[in-house]
Amino acid sequence: MSETKKEPDPDLPKIIGRTRRLTSHHRVTFDRIFHSGGGYVLDFSDRTMSEWFEETLDLDIFQQRFQIDGSSKGKTLRGFVEVAEPRLVAKVLRALWSYRCGLDGYSEDDPDEEALLKAWLEQFTNELENASSLNLEDAFKDFSRDTTLPKLRAAIAGDLVAEKPDVALDRLHTYCVKRFRALLAERGTPVDASTPLHAIFGAYGKILRDEGTVSAFALPTLRVQHKLFEGLNDARNKRSFAHDNDLLAVSEAQFIVDSVLASLAFIERIEAERTTPDSDLDAEIPF
């Protein structure tokens, strides 16, 4: 999975604004780093900027959705910072910083000034990573010694951070199959390898109901999750890279992914509470 998010330095003033990620005040520093005032970005032409983002980051930087304030290179880059997935923005800015440092004439002559700009960018990228709405750490767990699991989680996270939920669907389906099979095996209820995802989840949901793990208030929503995983199973088979398919529309794929992540995070909370010893719970009560 992607790297653990770094916490911003609490002793430094927050950079990200309430309504825009780059406030007018901090935009001055941003433009100073990337020489992006006046419509420019470092030494890029329109062509070389497009090529660099495509070849280095597999990203079409000149998408219309990034051009909220204009289509120049500088405005496009700042628009990308405003609207793209925060972890993706952080990844791009760090790569762009490395590119900048390899150029002649774009670093500050004063080493102290250069160090201040580097510290500012590190603070900004840390804040971006912590502002991400992707629920990856809560949803995905290292639940077994399966050596393919870390690679699977990393592949899913990489696609989601890169805003490619349509590409992630196949591997997200694989993770869910592995996770629910493992949860059933822990309870002594293994399932056949040919059992589809929604049937595996259905068996798990029945166990939760019978155990009384989920209250009557949450049970109806848990039943809805069965249809969610049936939908994921169908999308995986008919609209993902699992077969020679046309991919699902990005907006629809993102909706499915968001719903599955929320469901997985809820299930992990259920499992964490289930495995917490009663003595640990009692120890938290101060009376």
Rank of each mutant, 00 (worst) to 15 (best):
T4Q: 13
K5P: 03
K5I: 10
K5W: 06
K6N: 11
D9N: 15
L12G: 05
I16R: 06
T23Q: 06
H25R: 13
H26Q: 09
F30G: 03
G39W: 07
Y40T: 13
L42Q: 04
L42H: 05
M49K: 01
E51D: 11
E51H: 05
E54T: 09
E54R: 14
T56D: 10
L57H: 12
D58W: 07
D58G: 08
D69V: 08
G70Y: 06
F80L: 03
A84W: 00
A84C: 05
V89M: 05
K91D: 14
V92M: 09
V92P: 03
L93Q: 08
S98P: 05
C101I: 08
G102V: 10
D104K: 14
G105Y: 05
P111W: 04
E114H: 11
L116Q: 15
L117V: 07
L117M: 12
L117N: 14
W120M: 08
L121V: 07
E122Q: 13
T125V: 11
N126E: 12
E127D: 09
A131L: 11
S132G: 12
S133N: 14
L136Q: 04
L136M: 08
R145T: 14
D146S: 11
T147C: 11
L149G: 05
A154H: 12
A154N: 10
A154C: 06
I156R: 00
G158P: 03
L160S: 06
V161N: 02
V161W: 00
K164Y: 04
P165E: 04
P165F: 04
V167L: 13
T174G: 05
F180A: 00
R181F: 03
H198G: 00
A203Q: 13
Y204S: 00
R209E: 13
V214F: 02
A218S: 13
R223C: 07
R223E: 13
L232N: 00
L232S: 01
N233Q: 14
D234A: 11
N237W: 02
E252A: 12
I256T: 01
V257M: 07
S259C: 09
I267Y: 00
I270L: 08
E271V: 07
R274A: 12
T276S: 02
P277F: 04
